[in-house]
Structures are given as structure tokens and as C-alpha cells.
Amino acid sequence: MKLIPYLNFNGQCETAFKFYEQCLGGKIGDIMTYGKSPMAEQTPSEWHDKIMHAQITVGDQELMGGDSMSEYFEEPKGTSVLLSIEDAGEAERIFEALAENGTVKMPIQETFWAARFGMLVDQFGTPWMINCARID
């Protein structure tokens, strides 16, 4: 079994995944637009360039997502994508990159459980937690 976070966007999936590819050092794999899908005829023409499904690989992990049509889109509530990073400097770099034009909820800092921990909501509305475990 494999757990894979699936992020929903309100029309900005392609931009978000390109941003995540840059911030996280990942590689975008599969991308399917509504217009190139078997559902193209049932999809409003203004959504043909929107992403029905996208996948990015970061290391040996995957993140997936797509654009939800406005009547189905809901902002994330009660969840975050947690990145566990071994190097404190890399944790800070990724935190700062993801925070660009977003909202920092808790600045990245040392805590009683972590060498670095921080929380943010990125410019696309995705909540993130960045954790770098304490090595004693």
C-alpha cells in the first residue's frame, strides 16, 4: 500500500506543480488536461486547458493533483502536507521557497521535537508543515 497526497486546485494546478517542481527538486510526470481526456466533450471549453490529473515525483515519493471545477472545489481544511527533511539548511530553503507569496503560520524554527519546524499555506492554498527531526 502507498499513501499519495492528492491536491485539488481551483484552476492553478499546472502553475502550482511547476512551482513545486522547482521548490522541491521534483520531476513532473503525467499531466492530462480536461481537453485531452475522454471527458473533453462534457467539459466546458474554458476548462479544456485546465489539469484533470497531474503527478510529480520528489525523490521516491509522489504527489498528485488536479483542478476541480468551481462548483466542486473546496479549500483544504484540517490537513497539511508534511515534508520530513533530514538537513536543517534544506528544510529552511524549502520552507522559504514554498512560503513565497503565501502565508507563514509558524516561522521555521527549532522546537523541542525538531531541529527545524514550520507551517505555511502556499500561494495556491496548500497547507504545508516542514519538519527536520532533532538528531541527538
Rank of each mutant, 00 (worst) to 15 (best):
75 E>W: 01
109 Q>K: 12
73 F>G: 08
46 E>N: 12
103 T>S: 13
62 E>F: 12
119 M>H: 03
82 L>D: 09
43 T>G: 12
3 L>C: 11
58 V>M: 02
118 G>H: 07
109 Q>L: 04
17 F>S: 06
109 Q>T: 11
29 G>D: 05
81 V>S: 02
68 S>C: 10
109 Q>G: 14
37 S>T: 01
5 P>L: 14
29 G>F: 11
83 L>R: 09
77 K>E: 07
79 T>K: 05
133 A>K: 05
20 Y>F: 12
39 M>W: 04
72 Y>M: 15
75 E>M: 08
38 P>V: 09
73 F>R: 00
75 E>P: 00
134 R>L: 02
105 K>G: 03
26 G>V: 01
80 S>N: 08
43 T>S: 12
107 P>C: 05
67 D>S: 14
7 L>K: 04
56 I>D: 10
126 T>N: 10
66 G>A: 08
24 L>Q: 04
103 T>C: 08
46 E>I: 05
35 G>H: 10
14 E>M: 09
57 T>G: 03
50 K>S: 14
99 A>F: 03
118 G>A: 04
110 E>C: 01
55 Q>G: 03
94 I>A: 07
26 G>L: 02
135 I>T: 14
105 K>W: 08
24 L>D: 09
35 G>K: 06
100 E>T: 10
50 K>V: 14
9 F>P: 00
100 E>S: 07
32 M>C: 06
18 K>G: 07
77 K>F: 10
31 I>R: 02
18 K>C: 08
119 M>Q: 10
113 W>E: 15
108 I>V: 08
37 S>Q: 04
85 I>T: 05
4 I>Q: 01
93 R>D: 06
17 F>T: 06
65 G>L: 12
29 G>A: 09
57 T>Y: 06
60 D>P: 03
17 F>L: 10
104 V>F: 12
86 E>C: 00
88 A>N: 07
83 L>T: 00
129 M>C: 05
41 E>M: 03
28 I>D: 13
32 M>F: 00
22 Q>D: 15
129 M>A: 09
21 E>V: 06
123 Q>P: 01
30 D>T: 07
9 F>S: 06
24 L>C: 01
123 Q>V: 11
16 A>M: 12
22 Q>K: 14
127 P>M: 15
75 E>Y: 02
70 S>Q: 08
68 S>N: 04
99 A>S: 09
122 D>K: 14
135 I>C: 02
41 E>G: 05
74 E>L: 09
76 P>Y: 15
68 S>Y: 03
115 A>G: 00
18 K>F: 09
107 P>L: 00
109 Q>W: 02
26 G>M: 01
10 N>Q: 13
12 Q>D: 12
3 L>V: 14
31 I>G: 00
58 V>K: 07
132 C>D: 12
109 Q>N: 13
5 P>F: 13
8 N>F: 10
69 M>A: 14
60 D>E: 15
113 W>K: 12
73 F>C: 11
30 D>L: 11
20 Y>G: 13
92 E>D: 15
61 Q>W: 00
12 Q>T: 14
47 W>A: 15
33 T>G: 05
9 F>Y: 08
86 E>I: 05
4 I>T: 13
86 E>S: 09
109 Q>S: 12
69 M>Q: 11
13 C>A: 12
59 G>Y: 06
74 E>R: 09
105 K>E: 14
61 Q>K: 07
128 W>S: 06
53 H>P: 01
106 M>E: 04
83 L>D: 04
6 Y>C: 10
117 F>V: 00
116 R>Y: 03
